[in-house]
Design a protein around this nucleic acid. Sequence first.
DNA 1: ATGAGCAATCAACATTCGTTGATCAGTAGA
DNA 2: TCTACTGATCAACGAATGTTGATTGCTCAT
Lengths: 106, 106
Amino acid sequence: MTTTIKRRDTGVNLFHALSDVTRLEIMERLKDGELCVCDLTEALKTGQSRLSFHLKVLKDAGLITDRPEGRWTYYALNHEALKELEAVVQALQGSRRGVGSSSRCR
Amino acid sequence: MTTTIKRRDTGVNLFHALSDVTRLEIMERLKDGELCVCDLTEALKTGQSRLSFHLKVLKDAGLITDRPEGRWTYYALNHEALKELEAVVQALQGSRRGVGSSSRCR
DNA sequence: ATGAGCAATCAACATTCGTTGATCAGTAGA
DNA sequence: TCTACTGATCAACGAATGTTGATTGCTCAT
């Protein structure tokens, strides 16, 4: 089914974006509200370039949004994407019906 | 906090294991019950070696379990891990309190 | 206009990840 | 025992990812 494939694709994208310690930590920091890159640089004690890279990955996956203001850029969680992620995970848990229904390989 | 760090690590592991189309498809196939590798090889129309590789990744992440029987090995979802995954995702959605509480970068 | 600060982008490099084909170990059946 | 089959593992290769330092573009303050 097309929707299944589409969900699989968005699932892969979301999971990949979250499959990195730095990016997960960014997400955690953003739980309390939006932060600019300089906040995050200080909080994570890491280089600006590296941070920018990971922010881009998260943004491309739709997990965060950016809001440029003056010379700063504020990043925030995108709760829509997180709801979508939750849906993907729940779809994975699935029906849980009938256990042990293998075809037994011939 | 230690539990936070631990959750972040298991989160990274789980997310990484699911960040691949083939592995997600394996998970979906296993929703209906356990399958042996030959079932999956046929279902996904792919090589045995490749499949074995991805099954190992999923197993190492704790997302699936294996049950050798005779010359076949049956794989099944580990619902414990899926519950853990759900918890990680929900922790990510977090408090959702106070928006716009940035430190404003000076 | 000039200088300073924030953040994105780039190139270069190292590391990790996924694929493929071959080999190996264990099991079932003749 | 000999053979056929399932599935794990390995080596080799190519592709994708992450890191670092430098550069560039903007914006604000002087």
